[in-house]
Design a binder for these strands. Structure first.
Length: 545
RNA sequence: UGGGGUGUAGCCAAGCGGUUAAGGCACGGGACUUUGACUCCCGCAACGUAGGUUCAAAUCCUGCCACCCCAGCCA
């Protein structure tokens, strides 16, 4: 299912070329920053990083890119590891960017000695001033021509903690007139008197991503450093660092387009706001596009991987229709989720010619075809059916129950609607039917157009949580103006209905197809007295009123 | 207006000088059905634009247009 892509993507072409002409091996890495939970966008990178390594007989490392202690926390480390494994990937080595702080420092010293790095005393604002603009060249810092010895001494004192945060930086000496702004003497190290979640108080200077990343890659023996498009303009700098540090191993950075999904907020910044401002219950709220949220909602790793394989890899900015994701989920769940009956919005149905107190167990197949066995449901005089499966005055091709109409109750008998009660508000309260004893399921030739799901009167009360997209499509500017404006008020609907008795003991995470209703997952965190089911995705419904 | 990227149907995405321009999602029609599901058939629409090179261009060249990324001591 995942191998249906025959065509090679552009990354595979590069890799194959390199394996032919450079080194006959591949090692990749997945480098999340531990500042949040992994989401479906990360899953794309995961599939590419781990997938490429596997396809070409290499390995992939997991490396936490933790060079900025102001934004990171160890809290996320375990969650990220868990999600990667859940998705089905295993790393060869587990590293932290901070493991390389010592080596980064030594290499910085090396660059200073080579005369291609210097300590700059310019303030942040001055540096911005000196950098120039997109159309005008920058100008050189007055500190750019310091002697090697002076740079060495200052850098050593930076490390020793003699200077205040922001008072100095170590910069690469490249070209202040470069048309590529990233090459205008980028900062390599900044001073930050702050404890790091991995290294504690050992360091008060931290390397920048642009300096640390290529070093980490090169040391780890990474051959292909796959990342998203926004790093394209950083590649010359990446190569510069590898070159200046004189690494034997020269990893190749290849960029690809990140994943966007319709009606889905993928920006970590906004996801964080949703959590911190209480719009959702947490990172694992089933409405979140995080892997933990999707897991709780009932998405399977197989479906996610299949989806990502279908989306493919390219450099074109794109927004994939969530319908494609949902299709993959349905396809996967259709083959594995047991068919059970649930009534989300119940209405009472009385079989008037069935004696009170008489019951009959009827069989329902677990999966179509019957090879997965069956389970039984108790049929009797009083039942529940779905409220929307009955219409007093139905539209044209309504196959469900209507006054005088006939319908089969799944696995049981054909019933005919004889009458119904309505309350003062006009709401139907009870439907009265008669059943045809000659129409027992499996022993009857007669066909009717509609088949309804139903439940006995002793069914188990359950809570159903129906999810709609959390965010409406909007621009970042809109979101900055008024975050609440983007919220979908109907993103969560809670319904109280019933499920088959067997589901009283549904294990958290179990997935089912509630016939004619949709795919649901027993809630992972449910502690309620009655079971809670999250709707993973609805069934396709070709009936339109 | 500097640099780096990207433009193939409603949405993804193959294609690499000669193809009727793959495939998937979505959509429409039909068959089947004890889930209006699934499955199975059938249909569906595209090379940003203007020139040029060539017997032949989505593929090569040039101009133009549109969109994305870069002016953090973030990643």
């Amino acid at each position: 299912m995942e191998e249906l892509k025959a065509a090679k993507n552009f990354i595979e072409e590069f890799i194959e070329e390199d394996m032919r002409t450079k080194q006959n091996r591949i090692t990749t890495r997945f480098p999340p920053e531990p500042n949040g939970y992994l989401h479906i966008g990360h899953a794309k990178a995961l599939c590419i990083d781990f997938g490429m390594a596997k396809k070409y007989g290499g390995t992939c490392n997991l490396r936490f890119d933790d060079t900025n202690p102001t934004k990171e926390d160890a809290e996320y480390v375990e969650a990220i590891k868990y999600d990667i494994n859940w998705l089905g990937f295993e790393w060869a080595e587990l590293k932290f960017g901070s493991d390389y702080f010592g080596q980064c420092y030594e290499l910085a010293v090396k660059l200073i000695k080579k005369g291609v790095a210097y300590v700059d005393d310019l303030s942040k604002d001055d540096m911005r001033e000196y950098r120039g603009t997109l159309t005008e060249a920058g100008k050189e810092s007055p500190f750019r021509s310091r002697s090697v010895d002076e740079n060495l001494e200052l850098f050593s004192r930076m490390k020793a903690g003699e200077f205040a945060d922001g008072s100095r930086t170590l910069r690469a000496k490249i070209d202040m007139a470069s048309p590529n702004i990233n090459m205008r003497d980028p900062a390599l190290y900044r001073i930050l008197h702050m404890a790091h979640h991995q290294t504690g108080d050992k360091w008060c200077i931290y390397p920048m991503y642009d300096f640390a990343h290529p070093i980490q890659d090169a040391i780890e023996g990474i051959t292909h450093s796959l990342c998203s498009l926004e790093y394209e303009a950083h590649r010359p700098l990446y190569d510069w660092v590898v070159e200046q540090c004189e690494f034997e191993n020269k990893p190749r950075q290849i960029e690809f387009a990140r994943l966007n999904l319709t009606n889905t907020i993928m920006s970590k910044r906004y996801l964080r706001r949703l959590v911190e401002e209480g719009y959702v219950s947490g990172w694992d709220d089933p409405r979140m596009p995080t892997l933990c949220g999707m897991r709780r909602r009932g998405y399977t790793p197989e479906a996610i991987r299949d989806f990502l394989a279908r989306v493919g890899v390219s450099k074109a900015d794109s927004t994939v229709d969530t319908a494609m994701l949902e299709h993959c989920v349905r396809e996967d769940l259709n083959a594995s989720a047991y068919r059970m009956m649930a009534v989300i919005s119940p209405i009472r149905l009385v079989v008037t010619n069935w004696e009170a107190g008489r019951y009959e167990d009827v069989e329902i197949e677990n999966l179509p075809g019957g090879e997965a066995g069956a389970h039984s449901v108790r049929f009797g005089r009083e039942l529940y059916i779905e409220r929307e499966d009955f219409a007093i005055d139905p539209p044209g091709k309504f196959f469900r129950l209507k006054p005088g109409g006939e319908v089969r109750l799944k696995g049981a008998y054909i019933v005919k609607c004889e009458n119904y009660d309505v309350d003062e508000a006009g709401l139907v309260t009870t439907i009265y039917c008669t059943y045809d004893p000659a129409t027992k399921s499996g022993e009857c030739e007669r066909k009717v157009k509609g088949t309804l799901h139903w439940l006995p009167d002793n069914a188990v009360p359950a809570e159903f949580r129906l999810y709609e997209p959390l965010m409406l499509t909007a621009t970042d500017e809109d979101a900055d103006k008024d975050f609440t404006q983007l919220m979908n008020p109907d993103s969560l609907q809670i319904k109280h209905g019933f499920v088959e008795n067997e589901l009283a003991k549904a294990a958290p995470g179990d997935r089912f197809q509630f016939m004619r209703v949709g795919y649901f997952a027993a809630d992972i965190d449910h502690t309620a007295e009655k079971p809670v089911f999250n709707r993973t995705v609805g069934l396709k419904d070709s009936f339109k009123m």
